[in-house]
Computed example of a mutant assay.
Amino acid sequence: MNKPQFSRRTFMIGSSILAASTLAGCNRTTKGSVATAPSIPSPYATMYGPMPHERFPLPGINLDKIPEKYLRRVVSYRTDEKVGTLIVDTKHYFLYLVQEDGKAIRYGVGLGRAGFEWSGRATVARKASWPTWTPPEEMIARQPELEKWSWKNGGMPPSLKNPLGARALYIYQDGKDTLYRLHGTAETWSIGKAVSSGCVRLLNQDIVDLHRRVPNQTPIVVL
């Protein structure tokens, strides 16, 4: 049997085709394609991402459900209050933590009925991580089914469903509990709105951040 014969010209043509194919495979390009740099994640994606190491792991927040102006950020803010003061602007649904050089960290908040009922100056008397929730007597009178979570029954234990969320700051005035709270919530739709109950609610990721920054005896002003 005769063996196939390959000329030098045939070998060179085949080698060129193979090299071209190999290069095309490495570059993974097609005619008309445009190379693009990888997208840079929004800082909010990290800020409001999952928190798996919490006592009750917090899921990430769907940022499409919240107007961007209510997401945490550093803003210019002119005030005569000293650095470290908390200021609740109930008219615009913002909470400010006063910083140096005319700046503040601004958080979006939702306000319940109690959030509108009290204003003035007070202090953060205590803080709680994954707090127990005890509905006030007035709320139990309106919703008798909440009796099982009353003070005498020990309140509602912490969980992802607890109305106080991941953290709570308790506001006292002249040594007395105002029943005013800054607390977390999983109800993202309520940020920037007035809701039926509660005080001042922040996204759980925001109240965790605020809880870390604010010590006991921090002054608070509610406008």
Rank of each mutant, 00 (worst) to 15 (best):
V75E: 04
D101E: 15
S159D: 06
R8Y: 05
R212V: 07
P52K: 04
P59S: 02
G175C: 08
W151T: 15
P43E: 03
P144K: 05
G198F: 01
G192E: 08
I171S: 00
I61Y: 09
H211W: 15
S16V: 12
M47Y: 10
T134F: 01
F11L: 14
L97Q: 13
F116M: 11
L182H: 00
P50M: 08
A20K: 05
A37D: 06
P52W: 05
G175N: 06
M139V: 15
R212W: 11
L58K: 02
S129Q: 14
D174M: 11
M139Q: 14
S42I: 03
L86W: 00
G165S: 05
G14M: 07
Y93A: 00
R55E: 13
A166D: 09
Y170H: 13
T36H: 14
T46N: 08
A114M: 12
T85L: 04
P4Q: 04
I191P: 01
I17R: 06
F56S: 09
T30Y: 15
T185Y: 02
E81P: 01
T90N: 10
W118M: 07
F11H: 03
E68Y: 07
A168Q: 05
G192I: 07
Y48I: 04
T36K: 15
T85R: 02
I87H: 07
A20I: 14
Q99P: 03
T46F: 12
V221W: 02
A45K: 13
V98I: 15
Q173V: 04
S190V: 08
A45E: 15
F6W: 09
A20V: 13
G102H: 09
N27C: 08
T22A: 15
Y70R: 09
I40F: 06
V214Q: 03
D64I: 03
K31F: 13
Y93N: 03
S39L: 12
S150K: 05
A166P: 04
T36D: 05
T218E: 01
R142H: 06
L63T: 04
A125G: 12
R142D: 11
A19P: 02
H53R: 13
R78S: 14
T218Y: 01
G14W: 01
P158Y: 00
S33A: 15
V83I: 14
T123P: 01
Y170G: 04
E145Y: 10
A114W: 12
F56C: 14
T29E: 10
R78L: 09
G110R: 00
K3F: 11
N27D: 12
Y93K: 14
G49S: 10
D209E: 11
A45N: 09
V208W: 02
Y170V: 04
K193R: 15
I171V: 14
P67A: 10
L169C: 07
